[in-house]
């Protein structure tokens, strides 16, 4: 599919200004406590230059990294609805308002189309900063949109997961997004359009138990927490210390649930290889 055919209704041009971190501001690695400048950190694709800790980054950083900043965003103005009028210590409405204000995002996922080393790719990337990257109706609907777009244009799909799981404030609607994203992925698979799932720190709960684990290729960044039940819950259940390295990317690779682990510095190249290899993918008879 040609790069120019995408210019049609329903596609918004990415107008978001890149929020440049002020130069000279320091970044302290939460793992090794090494201090570097924000600029150095960015130039090292948001990894600690000392210990290779992969700093948690958002959709914008991934889009910049994969598409070199040149992409079209879909459904950028899609927002959550407080169907249940949910209220705990705070109301869901207030939580949404605060999350939007804090992040400048509309919800916990963004979908974009662009080119990765000249090959088209649709990316859905989650933002942990928005209510813990939780999956509610917007996440489900945007993923469904991305899948339909991928099917229509036979473009490979990459979903980058970064999430605490379901969004409790959308209760059953949130739970049903597991079913929704999975039935949509079954359509994508039937059409023979490749789906790559990249799990990053953290990927837990209902997201892991639906689209994150369903990649034709499952990949993960190093040392990410990947789980169904989070370590705290497991520990409370079994009342024992957890084994060293439990629920890390390396643990999942060892147990057969990942195809490979990819260092963020090599992400573009590895994905580029995959896109090349899958270029002749077609609908099975």
């Amino acid at each position: 599919m040609g790069w120019f055919k995408r210019l049609k209704d329903g596609i918004q041009t990415a107008t978001r200004n890149k929020k440049e971190a002020p130069e000279g501001l320091w970044y302290k690695c939460p793992r090794c406590s090494e201090t570097v400048t924000r600029k150095e950190l960015r130039e090292n694709v948001y990894k600690c230059p000392n210990c290779n800790y992969h700093e948690r980054i958002g959709s914008q950083e991934y889009f910049d990294l994969l598409f070199d900043g040149n992409f079209e965003e879909y459904e950028a103005d899609m927002e959550a609805v407080d169907v249940l009028q949910f209220k705990d210590l705070k109301s869901y409405k207030d939580r949404l308002k605060a999350a939007k204000k804090k992040t400048g995002l509309s919800d916990a996922i963004r979908v974009a189309r662009g080119k990765l080393n000249r090959r088209p790719l649709i990316v859905a990337a989650m933002d942990f900063g928005f209510i813990g990257g939780s999956m509610g109706s917007v996440v489900g609907e945007k993923i469904a949109f991305a899948i339909d777009e991928a099917r229509k244009t036979r473009t490979p799909l990459l979903i980058i997961s970064k999430t605490g799981g379901a969004r409790m404030m959308e209760a059953a609607f949130s739970l049903m997004q597991m079913a929704k994203t999975s039935v949509k992925l079954s359509q994508l698979a039937k059409d023979g359009v490749p789906y790559f799932s990249l799990m990053t720190d953290p990927t837990t709960g209902g997201v892991t138990a639906s689209y994150a684990m369903l990649g034709d290729i499952n990949l993960a960044e190093p040392e990410a927490l990947i789980a169904f039940a989070g370590p705290r819950v497991v520990k409370e259940t079994i009342k024992k210390e957890l084994p060293e390295g439990f629920q890390t990317s390396e643990f999942l690779l060892e147990h057969g649930f990942l195809d490979f682990i990819v260092d963020r510095a090599e992400l573009t190249e590895r994905l580029s290889d995959l896109l090349h290899l899958f270029e002749s993918a077609h609908r099975p008879n």
Partner: peptide, 16 residues
């Protein structure tokens, strides 16, 4: 939510 359940892929089993 146990150790073995996680090792054997609780999430993958449900997703599948």
């Amino acid at each position: 939510p146990g150790i073995e359940a996680e090792e054997r892929g609780q999430a993958e089993a449900i997703a599948r």
